[in-house]
Design a protein around this nucleic acid. Structure first.
Length: 368
DNA sequence: AAGACGGGGCT
DNA sequence: AGCCCAGTCTT
């Protein structure tokens, strides 16, 4: 038996549930995915909310549901369209996995998201947290849904000092959550725990004086709420130097679709390459790359600007050049598109910044 | 177990 | 500049 269970033995679970759920019913935010219990909408919202703030997700969720109102609509959509709807939200494999899983649900389960944990957990993009969230919120089953909020809240309430950065620690919190969850109201209970983490039991300066379960909180009684949860820190990001070209010819732009795996998979970008050497000027290095890799002869401008973009695990430092294409007769891998059609393609934020720089410096107007 | 995988907001 | 966010997948 884990140490967390021993602590639960002298813990008034019933009163804790009542205090927490009562607060939630009074104070919960009016969020678009709380308007009904449609399993599809719960699913989409939970995928979008992975590692992403509520305020960021709201407009994406509304637009996505408008465009793809149900399993069938999303299953019949093109991936290009789905990625476009995800543009700027990040972690794009979520969109591709959701699309793939929705197609599977349409084909194998007649369009109905399974309520069986085994079947649910096999769908792409549905891990232990999302499985629990869907089972509890959409199907009202008493399954734990342990995310970052829940680990933080429970680490404080039960004074659990396990390192939440370690993968195996999640099991401890799942066991604790399984013991605390209301069997009568699992949906409200799980959402209340997460809502408390978002609104009251925040990472820094938690509002303990306003907390509806303060009297149940072991960390507060010891004055340790600011010390929890324990989390070992990650290391800093790697720097990557990139040279990028905005190539034009008349009213055409040259863009490239990234490969279907890895960083920013299947999104579009302006032709670019990593520069590992400083023996050759970057402009020349990029011209050679464009000729050898994409078969285009281009004459590049002087440096027009640099753009920095920080990812969670690396930083891009991008030198931006503009260029005129002299010859594209042996072009490969690139697409020529009308400048006015550019917004049909899904670009990651760094390349949105590059295009903004181009519009500013080249003074072009893009008519819708 | 550790790293890849986005982007934005707060300290 | 670092940390965090309604995590999952791959190696």
């Amino acid at each position: 038996m884990g140490q967390s269970l021993q602590k639960i033995e002298n813990f008034d679970i019933k009163t804790f549930q009542e205090d927490l759920i009562g607060w939630y019913i009074r104070e919960k935010r009016d969020l678009p995915w709380r308007k009904d219990q449609d399993p599809y909408k719960v699913w989409v919202s939970e995928i979008m909310l992975q590692q992403t703030r509520v305020e960021t997700v709201i407009p994406y969720f509304n637009n996505f549901i408008k465009k793809f109102p149900n399993v069938e609509a999303l299953a019949n959509a093109d991936e290009e369209e789905v990625l476009k709807a995800w543009e700027g939200l990040g972690y794009y494999s979520r969109a591709r996995n959701l699309h793939s899983a929705v197609k599977e649900v349409a084909a194998k389960y007649g369009g109905k998201l399974p309520d069986d944990p085994k079947q649910l957990g096999k769908l792409k993009g549905i891990g232990p947290y999302t499985k629990g969230a869907i089972l509890s919120i959409a199907y009202n089953k008493p399954e734990p849904a342990v995310d970052g909020n829940v680990m933080r809240v429970l680490s404080r309430i039960l004074l659990i000092e396990e390192d939440i950065a370690k993968p195996k620690t999640r099991r401890i919190f799942e066991e604790a959550a399984a013991n605390l969850i209301s069997k009568e109201r699992p949906s409200d209970f799980n959402q209340a725990l997460m809502e408390l983490g978002a609104m009251v039991c925040t990472p820094t300066s938690p509002s303990c004086l306003l907390c509806p379960v303060q009297e149940h909180c072991l960390a507060f009684s010891e004055g340790l709420q600011e010390k929890l949860p324990v989390k070992t820190r990650s290391k800093s990001t790697k720097q990557v130097s990139i040279a990028c070209a905005v190539l034009v010819q008349n009213n055409d732009l040259y863009i490239h679709k990234r490969p279907d795996t890895g960083l920013l998979a299947n999104l579009w970008e302006f032709p670019n390459c990593e520069v590992r050497t400083n023996r050759i000027p970057k402009r020349i290095y990029l011209e050679n790359f464009l000729r050898e890799e994409y078969g285009v002869e281009a004459e590049l401008s002087e440096l027009k600007g640099t753009i920095q973009h920080v990812f969670s695990h690396l930083t891009w430092n991008i030198n931006v050049y503009f260029g005129k294409v002299c010859s594209d007769e042996s072009m490969k891998e690139l697409e020529k598109v009308f400048i006015k059609d550019i917004d049909r393609y899904a670009f990651p934020v760094p390349h949105q910044k590059i295009f903004a720089l181009y519009k500013e410096k080249a003074g072009i107007q893009v008519e819708p």
